[in-house]
């Protein structure tokens, strides 16, 4: 123990002559540009595929019918309703969103005294952050579902020109599985992926029992389940 040990602590007082570092008005402080705040949904872009519902490990997202949005080919007519009593702002739903319609603003303040008010359908229920510019958007170069479309082999033009052999040669089993893997099993007519019947484990309900249990209005989805232009099954490939 030295004299320094007694005197040196008093240097703490130099802060007396410095300005406090408190944020003057914390209530109106904007979050970072990438902040994962409350959800926004572009209802025009959204097709109601329900992939966000599938991936949400908290069962926070339910697909609900929305007034004014018709069920039509390529649009289930459902829109995600998010329960902020469940959400953990992991943004997997934003990452997985097929149409990139679901994004997050950087708004973060929401106080209510009734716990039931925290369920809302972004884009449909108007909120003050609906038009926020900043916030988390999924980077365009990253998807957590399959990315590259497996290219289907075709005959070379030289061979095609003088034969009746089928030009499109189809997928091998591996390619078909890879291609089927891109499917999110939304059940909507889809030009890019084969339908759920093609891959060996059928519906999201059996794969993700947790979220399936929470998704109540499944009955509303059934009319939008037309089996469309099914390509051949992998076994036949």
């Amino acid at each position: 123990m030295s004299v320094r040990d007694v005197l040196s602590p008093f240097t703490a007082w130099k802060n007396l002559f410095r300005d406090p570092v408190s944020i003057p008005d914390p209530l109106n402080r904007a979050a970072a540009p990438r902040y994962r705040g409350f959800h926004q949904n572009d209802v025009e872009k959204c097709i109601g595929c329900g992939t966000c519902e599938t991936i949400c490990q908290n069962g926070a997202i339910d697909m609900v019918p929305v007034e004014g949005i018709e069920t039509k080919s390529g649009d289930s007519g459902l829109r995600p309703r998010i329960d902020y009593g469940r959400c953990c702002w992991c943004a997997l739903c934003v990452d997985v969103c097929m149409t990139k319609s679901l994004t997050m603003s950087n708004a973060y303040t929401w106080v209510e005294n009734d716990p039931d008010l925290f369920c809302f359908t972004p884009g449909v229920d108007k909120k003050h952050w609906d038009n926020a510019e900043l916030g988390y958007h999924c980077p365009t170069d990253r998807r957590i579902t399959g990315q590259v479309r497996a290219h289907m082999r075709e005959l070379e033009p030289e061979t095609r020109i003088d034969s009746f052999v089928e030009i499109v040669q189809g997928y091998s089993v591996e390619e078909a599985i890879l291609e089927a893997d891109r499917c999110v099993a939304c059940g909507l007519p889809c030009a890019t992926a084969i339908t759920s019947a093609a891959w060996n484990c059928s519906t999201p309900a059996t794969r993700f029992p947790a979220s399936a249990a929470a998704s109540a209005p499944t009955s509303a989805r059934t009319p939008a389940l037309p089996a469309t232009k099914a390509t051949r099954s992998p076994s036949a490939g």
Binding site: A12, W13, N15, L16, R18, P20, V21, S22
Partner: peptide
């Protein structure tokens, strides 16, 4: 308040 100043707050 003066003590708080040493802690750099108001």
């Amino acid at each position: 308040k003066i003590g708080a100043r040493a802690g750099r707050r108001h």
